[in-house]
Design a protein around this nucleic acid. Structure first.
Length: 160
DNA sequence: GCCAACGTTGGC
DNA sequence: GCCAACGTTGGC
């Protein structure tokens, strides 16, 4: 069991959009960064927890919890020449890019803003603080517990 | 809208 | 293999 932080621009795809999907599940496609790709392809497992982060808005924040419904598989949006995620170097035999399926779990009682995360000395090692551009980031168990507390969540959720 | 950070590309 | 140029991300 591992913990992750997934970033998205809510104008593009939001936590509510995930809630409104069939089965509350959505393929997390379009990631075009090699470090993030490696996490998607090699490390992220079904059942892993996702902190769902809204970026590029006036108050960027972690807004809810999701989970991994399916481990890494080829991102076929790279093969579609009409799509915005097309990569001419990708092929069926060499997909290059991978995606996972993400399923909605529940919102935080209280969103955890980037400003509050930056104020917490226990969270300064998070990639979110140190290297904000990485769109898929590992989260330690200690960080996960702190963020859930900041988000007003109960011990029950922390033990999931 | 600005701009710093940083990942990628391509010439050499 | 270096590194300058360029494009993108994302906080502010």
């Amino acid at each position: 069991m591992a913990y992750w932080l997934f970033k998205t621009e809510p104008g593009c795809f939001s936590f509510d959009d995930l809630k409104n999907r069939p089965d509350m599940t959505e393929p997390w496609d379009g990631v075009r960064n090699f470090q993030a790709r490696n996490f998607l392809r090699d490390t992220i497992q079904p059942g892993d927890i996702v902190l769902f982060y809204h970026s590029n808005i006036p108050e960027p924040a972690i807004v809810g919890l999701a989970e991994i419904a399916r481990s890494g598989y080829p991102d076929t949006t790279a093969l579609n020449p009409d799509g915005e995620h097309f990569d001419p170097k990708a092929s069926v035999d060499k997909p290059i890019w991978y995606m996972v399926d993400v399923r909605y779990v529940e919102p935080l009682q209280k969103i955890v803003t980037l400003a509050r995360i930056k104020q917490n000395p226990l969270l300064t090692d998070m990639p979110l603080v140190k290297r904000s551009r990485l769109s898929i980031q590992p989260v330690t168990e200690a960080e996960w517990r702190i963020i859930l507390t900041m988000g007003g969540m109960t011990e029950r959720v922390k033990e999931r």
